[in-house]
Structures are given as C-alpha cells and as structure tokens.
C-alpha cells in the first residue's frame, strides 16, 4: 500500500499540474484568439479622432474610451481615499497598538478583508439610500460613492501590507535612530517607512489591481452601461469590468461582442501589468495580500 501511494503521488501531481496549465492556457488562449482582431485604435475611440476624444471635444460613442476613463478615475479616487487612512492605520497597528487593542483591531481587519465584495457594494448602496432620504434628495449612486466603497474594499490590504512591512524590519534598525535621540514619529517617518517602502508600494499596486478588476462593488453603487466620460464626481460612469459583464449578456450583434473581447483583453493586460510590477518591486509578495474575497 505504501509503495503504491509513493508511486501514485508523483503521477497525480504531474496530472494536476498539466490540467491546470492546459485549463488556464485554454481560457487565456481562447480570449486572445477571439479578441486580437478587434484590438486597435478603433476599439477604444470608435469613429472619433483620438485627439478630440482626449480633449473632450467630441464624445466617443462606439468605443471603450469612456469605460477606460471611468475605470482610471475610479481607481485613482479609491486609492486616494484608501492610502492615507490605510497607511496610517497600518502604522498605528505596527508601531503603537499593543495587547488587547491590537488583537481586537487585528480581528476587525481580518474580518473586513474576508468580506465578499458584493457585501461591501451593498453597504455602499445602503449608505447612499440612507443619505438620499435623510440628507439630500440629490444624492444618487455615482462615481464618488463607488470610489468610497472600493476604498473600503482595499483598505484592509493596505493596512496589512503596511503593518507587515514595518513589523518585518530588524530590531537593530528600529533602535538606531531612537538611540541617537530621534522621537518615535521621526523614527517612523525618516527610518522605518523608507526601509519598508518596497513592501508598502507592492501592496498598494496590488490594491490598484483589485480596484481595477472589481465588478460587484461598482455594480451596486453607480456604474451604468452607457454614460460617456464621467463629468463630475456625482455623475454615473462606465467601467471596463462592468462593460465586459454587460456585453456578455446583452450583446446584440457580433461586432458588439467583439468589443467585449477587446475590453476583456485590455482589462487583463492592465491587471497583469500591475501584478507584474508588484512582483518586480518585491520578489516575494506577501501571500496574504494575494488573498481576496
């Protein structure tokens, strides 16, 4: 029996490896085979000249430009909210919190990191409804609400990567500046943060990828199928992942479906580049930051 198990395990592992490789090659290969023809300037700008689109002189009707601009502004806003709060919380957790406080905060952030994104989206939506009824009837799901909800989604990742990067620093490094008379804050800002920068940046890049690909949160908080380039923080907007989802069920002809494939390739490319960057900056990306719910 033991001999048999020892023989079968390597065989089984080879089988698993090959199955996984074939499956993922199938998925990505299919996407590229079906989609590469639609790639090009026309996919993004439709019939509008690119320069006019960038300068907002003419709207783009049958291209991905509004969705791409929507995704970029969304990600930019969400990261802007999440970075200061997330890093500050991470610093507090690594350098100040102790004992019970630290344990409780730890638990909260673990729970938050494990929340399904659709639940965070539902929360964003409930808050919008609450504000609409109690504050002002002019508040509707919009770019601003979505970016806040997305910021909540990635907050735990940024907190964790900051905390882990700081806690991983050796004790000797921690003590040097303090021994020379630096204050606690000076030590953090001048010594510890610069030393742990690669870890923090790679965490932030992963968080950007998370924002760019998330669909469930924005579905519930203001993304729409066609809105043009977002005019203000309070307007509805388009986004790449939602466009892909929408096309997959609502396409009317092959041409529209082809734009869906094109959009999928663009989104995949953006996300893979971001992940590549994160791995490049920090050779061993923390496993915990790869986990997403």
């Amino acid at each position: 029996m033991r001999k048999f198990v020892e023989k079968i395990v390597p065989l089984f592992s080879w089988m698993c490896g090959i199955v996984l490789l074939v499956a993922i090659a199938g998925v990505l290969g299919y996407l590229f085979l079906k989609g590469y023809r639609s790639l090009g300037l026309k996919l993004i700008f439709g019939t509008t000249p690119p320069l006019d689109a960038f300068l907002m002189r003419r709207p783009v009707f049958n291209g991905l430009f509004p969705a791409i601009v929507g995704t970029f502004s969304l990600v930019f806003l969400a990261i802007c909210w999440a970075i200061p709060v997330g890093m500050a919380a991470g610093i507090y957790l690594a350098e100040y919190a102790q004992g019970k406080t630290k344990q409780i905060l730890d638990l909260f952030f673990d729970v938050m990191a494990g929340l399904p994104s659709v639940v965070v989206g539902l929360f964003g939506f409930s808050v919008t409804v609450f504000l609409n009824r109690n504050l002002s009837g002019r508040i509707y799901p919009c770019l601003f609400i979505s970016s806040i909800a997305l910021a909540f989604l990635v907050l735990p990742y940024i907190i964790r990567t900051t905390q882990i990067a700081l806690e991983g620093l050796p004790g000797s490094l921690r003590m040097t500046a303090l021994a020379l008379g630096a204050s606690r804050l000076q030590n953090i800002v001048r010594v510890l943060l610069p030393q742990s920068l690669s870890g923090i940046i790679s965490g932030v890049i992963l968080a950007i990828g998370r924002c760019a690909e998330d669909t469930a949160v924005i579905m519930l908080t203001g993304v729409v199928a066609s809105a043009g380039v977002p005019r203000s923080l309070l307007s509805p907007y388009e986004a790449l992942p939602f466009y892909i989802y929408y096309i997959s069920s609502q396409y009317v002809d092959q041409e529209e479906l082809a734009t869906g494939y094109g959009a999928a390739i663009i989104l995949l490319f953006i996300c893979l580049v971001l992940f590549g960057l994160a791995f490049l900056i920090k050779k061993r990306v923390n496993l915990y930051s790869l986990y997403r719910a």
């Binding site: 490896g17 993922i24 998925v27 990505l28 989802y245 997959s248 999928a264 996300c271 992940f275």
Partner: peptide, 27 residues
C-alpha cells in the same frame, strides 16, 4: 516545469474575475 507552473500560478492570481465569467459563458 516547477518554474513554469509557479510563474503561471502567480500570474493567475492577477486575472480579473470577470474574465473567468466571460470566457466561461462563451467557451
């Protein structure tokens, strides 16, 4: 093989969920 599989797996963590759904529908 070990190297290839590991790199592929690391890359897979970055593939957006909606892509799996999209290819799922059509393939």
């Amino acid at each position: 093989m070990s190297w290839l599989l590991r790199k592929t797996v690391e890359m897979m963590t970055g593939v957006p969920t909606v892509i799996y759904g999209f290819v799922g529908i059509f393939l």
